[in-house]
């Protein structure tokens, strides 16, 4: 009888423990669902709000004082061009730095400084990059509030992301690959060029896409360099009407998040609807890029077997 009581006690303890387990698991799921729900409500609200505005005209008209006629032509073109400059600057610099730190760097204080510095830069608020750009690119170099200034600023901003992704991708390559290449007489650079870079390309690409997705949504640093918010023209096409090949990089511009900020801060409700529509386009762009990166990482991870 006593024995049975004890077993019953133990069963009660186990039941209680399990109840708490289930309770916590439920709380955990609720918290996760909360995150998921936020994404859904956010995208849904903007999608529904801006649905009426999301026509072809919205993509092919300039911003306007009349909300119903306003569009995002100059904004999305500006975003694409700024991303072009950003990618041109950040990809070689980031990949080069990553290759240097993984393959070349000796373990000394210089390398330590570079590494600590990169970790620190990753956590500097984006608006501080804007101030850097205002002081250096806009006034010191005299680039003004141009596509070039914005592209370079965002390039510096995403540099840590590209560097870290490159390093992680390179680190995943087994040492035998390097040894094999060098045993056949390849120099270090040949090893990097023909083995390390091709094998780590998927990981690097993922990092670049995630970095660009971050850059395309950045607003604060671009406001700081003094980008205009009302732009009813496009940058000059290269080699058309006497424009040089690179005249567009010095052109004033606006980008998607700035256009959205501009519309959000207007009191009229019609502009808020425009902001919703622009936000929806922006979110679709960034989520699309992130999804591409996640898919790429997943797919390529499955294919590579060392």
């Amino acid at each position: 009888m006593v024995q049975q009581d004890k077993t019953a006690d133990i069963h009660a303890v186990i039941r209680r423990g399990k109840r708490w387990d289930y309770l916590f698991a439920a709380i955990g799921l609720i918290c996760l669902a909360f995150g998921l729900l936020t994404v859904l409500v956010l995208v849904g609200k903007m999608g529904l709000e801006g649905l009426d505005r999301l026509s072809l005209d919205f993509f092919t008209s300039y911003p306007s004082r009349r909300a119903a006629n306003a569009g995002i032509l100059s904004a999305w073109v500006g975003s694409v061009l700024v991303m072009l400059v950003t990618a041109f600057a950040a990809v070689p610099l980031g990949v080069g730095a990553g290759v240097y730190l993984e393959e070349y760097a000796k373990k000394n204080w210089v390398t330590d400084i570079i590494e600590i510095n990169i970790t620190n830069l990753a956590a500097v608020p984006s608006i501080v990059y804007g101030l850097l750009a205002l002081g250096i690119f806009v006034y010191q170099f005299g680039f003004g509030g141009s596509i070039l200034s914005a592209g370079l600023t965002l390039a510096l901003l995403i540099l840590p992301i590209v560097i870290v992704a490159t390093r992680e991708a390179i680190r995943a390559i087994p040492g035998a690959m390097r040894e094999g290449s060098m045993a056949l007489g390849a120099t270090k650079w040949q090893t990097v060029r023909y083995h390390i870079l091709p094998y780590s390309m998927p990981g690097i690409l993922t990092g670049i896409i995630i970095g660009l997705a971050r850059a395309i949504g950045e607003t604060a640093p671009i406001i700081t360099i003094g980008a205009l918010t009302f732009i009813a023209f496009l940058p000059p096409l290269p080699l058309v009407e006497g424009a040089g090949l690179f005249d567009w990089v010095m052109s004033p511009f606006t980008v998607m998040p700035i256009q959205m900020f501009n519309w959000t801060s207007r009191p009229e409700e019609a502009f808020q609807i425009n902001a919703g529509a622009a936000g929806f386009v922006l979110v679709v762009m960034t989520l699309g890029m992130n999804a591409l990166a996640i898919w790429l990482r997943y797919r390529l991870r499955k294919n590579i077997k060392w």
Partner: peptide
């Protein structure tokens, strides 16, 4: 499933969150 969704949440532009705060 959950980790990519969280990553996506972290990747949404902050201006969109601002709009969300103001409007919703």
């Amino acid at each position: 499933v959950a980790k990519p969704i969280l990553e996506v949440l972290g990747g949404i532009p902050t201006i969109v969150f601002g709009y969300f705060a103001l409007m919703v």
